[in-house]
Design a protein around this nucleic acid. Sequence first.
RNA 1: GUGGAUUUAGCGUAGUUGGUUAACGCGUCAGUUUGUGGCACUGAAGACCGUGGGUUCGAGUCCCACAUUCCACC
Length: 374
Amino acid sequence: MTQPITYELLHVDKNSGARRGVIHTPHGDIQTPIFMPVGTQATVKAMTPDELKDMVHAQIILANTYHLFLRPGHKLVQEAGGLHKFMNWDRPILTDSGGFQVFSLGALRKITEDGVEFRSHIDGSRQFISPEVSMEIQEALGSDIMMAFDECCPYPSTYEYTKKSMERTTRWAARCKEAHKTENQGLFGIIQGGFFEDLRKISASDLIQMDFPGYAIGGISVGEPKEEFLKMLKFTTPLMPENKPRYLMGVGTPDYLIEAAISGIDMCDCVLPTRIARHGTAMTSHGKLVVRNATYERDFTPLDDECDCYTCKNYTRAYIRHLLNTKEILGVRLLSIHNLRFLTKLMESVRIEIERDNLLNFKNDFYKKYGYTK
RNA sequence: GUGGAUUUAGCGUAGUUGGUUAACGCGUCAGUUUGUGGCACUGAAGACCGUGGGUUCGAGUCCCACAUUCCACC
C-alpha cells in the first residue's frame, strides 16, 4: 500500500545539521520543522479553527485518544464523520495514543503486558486501553498521524524498570502495527529508553525494523535538567531514519524547540503556550512575561513589540492584564493567540534560517534577547 | 428619644469557660506550568481586634464610658 505519510527533505543547514522539509499527509502538507498546538479534547483550548489558521498559522494540531475515548467516545466522533468534521478542522491532525496518560495518571492506572487499566479521572470508572484499543480509537477518530501506544517513564527511573518498560513498549508497537488497518492514516513508532543510551539505541533499532512511516522520541522533557534533555536528544535523533519525519514529543519552550531543530527534529508539540496563557503568562522575544503582574497595570504597549499577531497589533498589556484580573474570557483567548503565534512564528524563522544555513547564529541572537544564558 | 444588636487585614467573616507568633475566604503581590487527569497549584505581604479607661500574672474575649452602623418602638 502507498504510505499516507511521507517526508521530503528540502535542505540541511550546513552549519547546524537542522532539516528543512515537508511532510505530506492526506489533509495537506506540513512545512517543517513545525510546532504543533495541542487540542486534547478536540479543541485547542479557547481557539476556533479559523483563528488557528488565520491568526496562529497552525498547520497541524494534536488531539488525545484517552480523553476523546472517555468523552464523548470515539464511536460518537466516528458517527459525526470523524474528528476533522466533528471539530471543523480540515488540516492534518495527529492523535496521541493515550501513552502519555499512562505516565501522567500515575496512581490511577495499572500496567500489564496486555495493556493499561485506568481509573477514569472523570467518574472513577474502570477503563482499559491496549495497543489494539488505542488503534481502534485512533482509527475511529480518523487522524492523519496515529501514535503507537507506549509507556512514558517518569524521571528518574531505574535502569531495570526503564529497560522492561521500553521492551514492552516495543512489543506494544508491534501489536499496534499489526492492529492498524486503515490506509489513510500513518502510524508512528515511539522510541523510549529513558536516559540510558544503550536502551535508546535498542529501542530505535527495533522500531526501525518495523518500518513505521515516522518516528517519535518519547520519555524526555519529563522534568529532567536541561543538560540531560540535550544529551538524550542529541544521542537519539541521529538514530532515526533520515527519510521519515522525526517527532519530539512534549517540547514547547523556545530554547528546546530551537535545540530540537538543530539536532534534526521535524515536529514538536506542547501544551505550554496554551496552558501558561490561561495562567496569565506570555512568551515574548524578550523572555517570559507574567502579564498579570502589577508592573503592567499602566503599560499601554503590546505584549511583544516584535510580534505580528492579532493580539499584539490591537491590544495592550494593561488591557490584557485587566481582562485576566477580571477573569474575562477574552484575556485567555488573546494570550493564547499570542503564545501560539509566538511559537509558530519562531518555527517560521527557524525554517528560513535553516535555508540560509544560519540557524546557529539565529539561536545565539535569540538566546541573548530572550535572556537564556546558554 | 427608648430598647436591642454590631464593630477583628482592602472587603466578608471565625475566634470555645480569659492563656504562646489572632484564623479563614475573596482581593492584593509574586513564583510555577513541557505527548493537558482535576484548570489551576505554591508562596508572600497585609490587623496597635472602634476609641478611652478598668479588672487580671495575662484581655479580641470580662466591666465602665464614649463613638459607629443596623434593627425595632415612640
